[in-house]
């Protein structure tokens, strides 16, 4: 008994694991690049919503969406440290590299989640707070803890978490959810599989080593390429819905048509590429898909401002 007590005392004298890691490591824990896309799409949802929102309320809502996104990323990095450690793309992340302790990442993620959701409820409205809470839960628990290691449809279903920020933005501004934000949701939801499968094709060996059942690992390259083309065809249709349904004009339609043409061309070129060209085209599609989503939402905004 006294031995255990002495060990506990000795441990207490060591610097707590919570105190390891620099501020930059904690920022990296929040996946700032992913956060920028989340903030951007959330902002567009907010601007597109009916009615006006005081700038201070709008800035607060955006900050809280960013904090919520960062929190779910920290929880993801805490839980996925084991697979991140064996993948070349992720092994330098703060937790697998040992710069931030796993427990520290967990408590950081939990505190930030609670803080963002409660602040959203108090400062903005309950609907956006509930949507933010659902998004964090869906990403950290449903996607990270359940889907990611169990099914090749992980990023298809898990894509819902990444697709919700414009809906949260819309709800923050209008305290309601209507067809328009659901179309924004659908755009990101359908965009996610070809975006991630392009990356998974390039990092196939990594995912195999980590035993993550991404589609190229479980179904092979040919099936993945067909699925990328299939989702790209659906995507170009969904992206035109804002124009078809009448809440975007010709500026959006023309811009989206050009972007769609490039997207589907890259997907088809990738489908028929030989082994020597495949990785290069998959990397191009992955990079272009990020650019594409940014521009699609920029066009939505530009069209609204011009119209």
């Amino acid at each position: 008994m006294s031995q255990i007590k002495n060990e506990t005392l000795n441990q207490a004298q060591e610097p707590a694991s919570l105190d390891a890691g620099s501020a930059a490591d904690y920022i990296a824990l929040m996946k700032p690049r992913v956060m920028s896309l989340v903030v951007f799409t959330g902002l567009i949802g907010m601007v597109m919503a009916p009615g006006t929102m005081h700038p201070i309320m709008a800035i607060s809502a955006i900050v809280l969406i960013a904090v919520g996104a960062g929190a779910s990323a920290a929880l993801n990095m805490w839980y996925d440290a084991d697979i991140d450690a064996v993948m070349s793309r992720t092994q330098d992340r703060p937790v697998p590299s040992g710069r931030v302790d796993g427990d520290a990442a967990l408590s950081f993620g939990l505190w930030m989640s609670g803080l963002s959701v409660l602040s959203m409820a108090v400062l903005i409205n309950y609907l956006s707070a509930a949507l933010l809470a659902f998004t964090i839960f869906f990403y950290a628990v449903v996607y990270t803890m359940y889907l990611k290691r169990r099914t090749a449809q992980n990023i298809v279903i898990g894509g819902a978490a990444g697709a919700l920020p414009p809906v949260i933005g819309w709800a923050a501004a209008s305290n309601s959810v209507s067809l328009e934000p659901l179309i924004f949701f659908a755009i990101i939801f359908i965009w996610t599989p070809p975006h991630f499968w392009a990356l998974a094709l390039v990092k196939n060996e990594d995912y195999k080593t980590a035993n993550v059942p991404m589609l190229p690992v479980t179904a092979g390259t040919a099936t993945t390429l067909n699925q990328i083309v299939a989702y790209s065809v659906v995507l170009i249709g969904v992206v035109m819905l804002p124009y078809i349904l009448g809440f975007s004009g010709m500026l959006y339609a023309a811009g989206a048509a050009v972007l769609n043409l490039i997207f589907i061309s890259l997907a088809v070129l990738l489908r028929f590429a030989d082994d020597t060209q495949r990785n290069r085209l998959a990397t191009m599609l992955f990079a272009y898909s990020i650019f594409y989503l940014f521009l699609i939402f920029t066009l939505l905004l530009a069209d609204r401002l011009v119209g």
């Binding site: 105190d19 620099s22 501020a23 201070i56 309320m57 900050v63």
Partner: peptide
């Protein structure tokens, strides 16, 4: 480690100040 801790504490302080300001401004609005 002490330098890292001081920097983290400073950033946490700034974050808290931003949060308090945000709550104050939204209340005023």
């Amino acid at each position: 480690l002490l330098k890292q801790r001081r920097r983290r504490a400073a950033i946490m302080g700034i974050a808290l100040a931003i949060m308090v300001t945000m709550f104050f401004l939204v209340t005023v609005v």
